[in-house]
Amino acid sequence: MSRKIHIVCVSGTREKLQMAAMIASVAAASGDEVSVFFSMNALPYFVKGYATAAPVEGSFGVLMQEDGGVPSFKQLFKYAAELGDARLLPCSMAIDLLKVSTEELDPELGPPTGLTRFLSDAEGAQMLTF
C-alpha cells in the first residue's frame, strides 16, 4: 500500500538536503506519493547557475563531500521526480524573495506553491522537515 509523504526542505546544509533527497528518491521509486516543498535556504540550489556548494554541518558532511561515490542531493531529487513522479515544489514566497522566475529554476521543479496549498495537500500525509 502506498503512503503519502510530504517533505519540507528549509535548511541549506549538505547533510539535511542529502537525507531529504534520499528519502524522497527511495520512497517515490517504491510507489509512495511524494511531494517536496523547497523554501528558505534550500531553494537557491535549484536556481539555474547557482554554483555555491552546500556547506557541511559536521564530519559526516565532509565524508560525503570527499567520497565521489555518494550521489548528489540534486541527482537524487531528480531521480525522485523522474523515476517516482515526486512533485518538487518551490515555495512561492521564497521565489519572490529571491526575485527569480520559474524559468530560472531547474526543470524538475513544479509550479510555485504557497504554504496554504501545500499544507492542504498534505492532509493525511506523513510530514518530514529538514
Binding site: 527511495v26 521509486a29 567520497d67 561515490g69 555518494v70 523515476l83
Partner: peptide, 10 residues
C-alpha cells in the same frame, strides 16, 4: 560499484 546508498538502487 563504488557508489553508496541509494545510488545502486536508483
Amino acid at each position: 560499484r563504488d557508489t553508496f546508498c541509494p545510488g545502486p538502487l536508483m
